[in-house]
Amino acid sequence: MIWQFDIIILIFLVITAVISLRVKDLLAASMVFGTYSFLICLLWAGMGAVDVAFTEATVGAGISAVILIATVYNTRRDSSD
């Protein structure tokens, strides 16, 4: 584990989490949440958990983002908060 990478990724992780919860456009929130999943996948590859990183890349950044975007297209895009 390279601690410089670790700290940079963790800070970006908190930033993306806050952005995805504060942005009012739900499609943008879904995309930023996909970025969050990809960042945490990088973090796990760095920490030596390669099996968890593979699963997060396919399931977290892939399937979760796709089903979130599908739900946004089937419902509505704007949010009150």
């Binding site: 929130a29 979130l68 908060d81």
Partner: peptide, 21 residues
């Protein structure tokens, strides 16, 4: 506190990844 249901679900996913982290 979020009013929108999809925002609540994104919060739930963030909570889960925090525990995994």
């Amino acid at each position: 506190t979020k009013n929108n249901l999809i925002k609540k679900l994104i919060g739930m996913s963030i909570f889960q990844t925090a525990i995994i982290l």
